[in-house]
Deep mutational scan, measured.
Amino acid sequence: MDALKSAGRALIRSPSLAKQSWGGGGRHRKLPENWTDTRETLLEGMLFSLKYLGMTLVEQPKGEELSAAAIKRIVATAKASGKKLQKVTLKVSPRGIILTDNLTNQLIENVSIYRISYCTADKMHDKVFAYIAQSQHNQSLECHAFLCTKRKMAQAVTLTVAQAFKVAFEFWQVSKEEKEKRDKASQEGGDVLGARQDCTPPLKSLVATGNLLDLEETAKAPLSTVSANTTNMDEVPRPQALSGSSVVWELDDGLDEAFSRLAQSRTNPQVLDTGLTAQDMHYAQCLSPVDWDKPDSSGTEQDDLFSF
């Protein structure tokens, strides 16, 4: 819950932080000083300027060897085509990944977070970031790969997607708890209302004896509580940590079903599988986004697919 609360507080303090972009060759504004600060901008989305290598189908939802083989196929196909790589912007948030063309600003792909089953910074092609997700059109699994400016960037994108998945799962947990509370309150309110109706004398007997209905007592009954809980029953509950912020979080049926399955089948359902080692994760978390744009010590960066 700490990640969720800190993310909400950060967004309320400075929503404009989320509009910064990394990996864009110096076009961005001043960047936060450390990885923790940038992680807090996830709610509205972190932007990464990358190059799209392509996509291939895979048979399993996750796995280092599986993704490595898929990336190898994608890279080989991209090299064989001889075409310049498409420059894209990857927007990562707890909602998922939005992929747009840098030149036309046209939407290429919009992947809900619950469809993503794996992401990684490839070991062999260490400047490549990739994720595996279920197609929104059918049940097939797709591996999408992107060329980053350097290994640090690939690791940073991988960690960002993993963190977005974690925050999304926490949102789901909060929403589920809130819905259970509202359902319980609604049920209790309905029981109270039913009890009051059972003990209320029939209207005919009131008229016969000349008694008047006590409207004041009726007004004191917990009807307002019942209506408050039943009027918006169809509205999706939102985490309290975000009250007053500009973010509107809505959970669709697909996300609810997917996270429910994860909660039942996995020990740590909030953790998205990645190909990063503990050492890689520690190294990337210690980086400032400013470091992502620094040239690798191995030599001059080449803006070309064939540089790796």
Rank of each mutant, 00 (worst) to 15 (best):
A3Q: 09
A3V: 14
L4W: 04
L4S: 03
S6I: 10
G8T: 04
R9V: 12
A10R: 01
L11R: 13
R13S: 04
P15T: 00
P15A: 00
S16C: 03
S16G: 09
S16V: 03
A18W: 09
A18C: 04
Q20S: 14
W22C: 03
G23V: 05
G23K: 13
G24Y: 05
G24T: 10
G25S: 01
G25Y: 06
G25K: 03
G26R: 05
R27Y: 04
R29N: 11
K30T: 15
L31N: 13
L31Q: 09
L31Y: 05
P32G: 11
P32I: 15
P32L: 12
T38Q: 09
R39W: 15
E40C: 12
L42S: 15
L42V: 14
L42A: 11
L43Q: 08
G45N: 14
L47W: 11
L47P: 11
S49L: 12
L50M: 12
K51I: 11
Y52S: 14
L53Y: 13
M55E: 06
M55K: 02
T56I: 04
L57K: 02
L57Q: 07
P61K: 04
G63N: 05
G63H: 04
E64L: 07
S67W: 15
A68D: 13
A70M: 10
A70D: 13
A70L: 03
R73D: 13
I74S: 09
V75G: 03
T77L: 10
A78E: 06
A80P: 13
S81R: 07
K84W: 11
L85W: 01
L85T: 09
K87E: 06
V88K: 12
V88A: 08
T89L: 09
V92F: 14
S93M: 12
S93E: 15
R95T: 02
R95D: 09
L99M: 15
L103D: 00
Q106M: 12
Q106P: 02
Q106T: 13
I108M: 01
I108H: 01
V111E: 10
V111I: 04
Y114K: 00
R115M: 09
R115L: 04
I116R: 05
T120G: 06
A121K: 08
D122G: 05
K123G: 15
A130W: 09
Y131C: 03
Y131S: 13
I132P: 14
A133R: 03
Q134W: 15
Q134G: 12
Q134E: 11
Q136W: 12
Q136S: 06
Q136C: 03
H137I: 14
N138L: 14
Q139D: 11
Q139S: 14
S140T: 14
L141T: 14
L141P: 15
L141K: 09
E142N: 11
F146H: 07
F146L: 11
T149C: 06
K150Q: 00
R151Q: 04
K152F: 11
K152Y: 10
K152H: 00
M153D: 07
Q155G: 02
T158W: 01
L159W: 05
T160G: 15
T160Q: 01
A164L: 03
K166F: 02
V167W: 02
A168C: 12
E170K: 11
F171H: 07
W172E: 01
W172N: 01
Q173C: 11
V174S: 02
K176W: 13
K176R: 12
K179A: 00
K181A: 14
Q187S: 07
D191L: 12
V192N: 11
L193Q: 11
R196I: 10
Q197Y: 06
Q197K: 05
L203S: 15
K204P: 03
A208K: 07
A208Q: 08
T209A: 07
G210V: 02
N211G: 09
L212S: 05
D214S: 12
L215A: 05
A219C: 04
L223E: 01
V226L: 10
S227P: 02
S227K: 05
A228L: 02
T230L: 13
T230S: 00
N232G: 09
N232S: 05
P237C: 07
L242A: 14
S243Q: 06
G244S: 13
G244E: 09
S246L: 00
V247A: 02
V247K: 00
E250R: 04
E250T: 15
L251P: 08
D252F: 06
D253V: 11
D253E: 05
E257M: 01
S260E: 02
A263L: 13
Q264L: 00
S265W: 06
S265A: 00
R266G: 00
T267W: 13
T267R: 04
P269K: 02
Q270E: 00
V271Y: 12
L272T: 00
D273C: 08
T274A: 02
G275P: 05
G275N: 06
A278M: 07
A278H: 09
Q279A: 04
Q279P: 07
D280T: 09
M281A: 01
M281F: 05
H282W: 02
Y283R: 07
A284Y: 00
Q285D: 00
C286R: 08
V290G: 02
D291S: 00
D293A: 15
K294V: 07
D296P: 00
D296C: 03
S298T: 12
Q302E: 04
D304R: 15
L305Q: 08
L305C: 08
F306P: 01
F306C: 06
F306H: 01
